[in-house]
Amino acid sequence: MKFSLNIQYKTLYLLLSLLIISCSKDDPEPINEEELITTVQLTFKSPGITDQTVRWQEGSNNSDIISLAANTQYEVEIIFLDESDPSDIEDITEEVKEEADEHQVFYQFSQLNISLGQSSSDTLDSNQNPLYVNSLWNTSEAGSGTVRVYLIHEPVTKSSSTRDGFAGETDVTVDFPINIE
């Protein structure tokens, strides 16, 4: 009995020391957050008018006001940026274009009469549906309102006139006030 108890204590001791050795911890490394979008930027171009760029940036919560002229056609380009690390700004738009089948840019206007058209420089998905990364906006009468900008991930359909119709998940939804003069 004495002998076997001795062995038991040795086993116990061995296991306890294993337990203690197995515990040491390195400092964790900071995580480089991927697939993050922090900034939405819209650029408006129209012949004879100075280019206009507006931004919505995470954290600032205030978007710039878009000023457009009445009865004018604008070529509008949207880009998505990851500016979480100011020293390494990433353009997410390229990813969106590469995965055109899984994405859709969508604009909704409130209290404004702007008609949306396809731009020849837009990216098309494999079924020739426009992604609306580049689009044509035709303004009519003067007024003020809002545009809501969406980036939709994995929409169920690529052609809808309402946000609900696309389904999928919302990656971006930001509002910009618009003034048409």
Partner: peptide, 23 residues
């Protein structure tokens, strides 16, 4: 009863750790 617990959150996920590393 003695318990030692080690949690490790893999940083390669590209997403902020939901639960941190701890002992």
């Amino acid at each position: 009863n003695g318990i030692i617990q080690d949690n490790y959150s893999n940083p390669n996920t590209g997403v902020k750790r939901l639960i941190p590393d701890y002992l």
